[in-house]
Design a protein around this nucleic acid. Structure first.
Lengths: 144, 144
DNA sequence: GGAGTATGCTTACCGGTGCTAATCAACGGG
DNA sequence: CCCGTTGATTAGCACCGGTAAGCATACTCC
């Protein structure tokens, strides 16, 4: 077991560095600079799960509600989301995509993370499969 | 090939989200709050590759020189690195770890990314192997 | 050897991201 | 009807990265 523990420690170290550098790169390498990665993530979630309250959205993105509030404010300022009062609970607000956001997401889907897709396409199928698995594992780790 | 392209697009999407959430989690889940992840990464690089100039350090971490300058200033303020003039080129500065930093890194190695290690240890060996591979691939992607 | 260019670090400034604490409105149970 | 809870927001802080510009030093070319 000592071997496993050692390996795990080394893995933790390397994985941490790799993820840091990679996410830095992801953030900077974007072509479309009009919307940030954080904003895009929020829009994607809305697209996938439909209209929801800021709190729910924060839950999905695993950030605190105040952080999501700022994102929503920014997106509303850009005309990408709408805020409508909740039908029964007047404390809540319902955030939904605007047609402009739908168009942006479609456009984004077309250009589909240009840099990253290109990079991934150049990898071997085995490496892609590894990343696919790793994405699942990291998402579980982020959630758990 | 259409299939592969589609898969790649989906992978790019999922991988992006997973990495974002995971790195967010990594940043927050740290126990030792005295040094930030960025600082720790710089110290690790110095430990691994030895004393170097701020520019080289920035290259390793894949950030711009001004960003590294700030990190170095902070680390110097904490007594974790020393700045000595370059022997032949007086424009350059040589950054090196202080004994305090060595001690900190040893301590850090002991506690070794507590949360992450724990999480990783709970995974199956196969999942760990996947992450190990993924770490390599992501590092290559970040560099390339 | 001096002028002009290139390099390396730093300063100044800006924007994005996330957090906690505190505030305010509205809901809902007792 | 009062009070605790919940949801969203505001205020303030810290971290992290980038660009543009300044400045000293090194190098190159005539």
């Amino acid at each position: 077991m000592a071997r496993t523990t050692l390996d795990t420690a080394a893995l933790a170290h390397d994985l941490r560095l790799a993820v840091m550098r990679f996410s830095r790169r992801l953030r900077n390498q974007r072509v479309d600079t009009s919307v940030t990665l954080t904003h895009l993530a929020a829009l994607s979630t809305l697209k996938r799960h439909g209209a929801m309250s800021p709190g729910e959205l924060a839950g999905h993105e695993r950030v605190q509600p105040p952080s999501m509030t700022r994102v929503v404010v920014a997106l509303e300022g850009k005309g990408l989301v709408s805020r409508t009062p909740h039908p029964t609970d007047r404390r809540q607000v319902v955030i939904d995509l605007t047609p402009a956001a739908e168009a942006l997401l479609t456009e984004e889907a077309r250009a589909r993370e240009a840099w990253l897709s290109g990079q991934l396409h150049a990898l071997s199928p085995e490496d892609r499969a590894t990343l696919r698995e790793a994405a699942r594992i990291m998402d579980d780790l982020a959630s758990g």
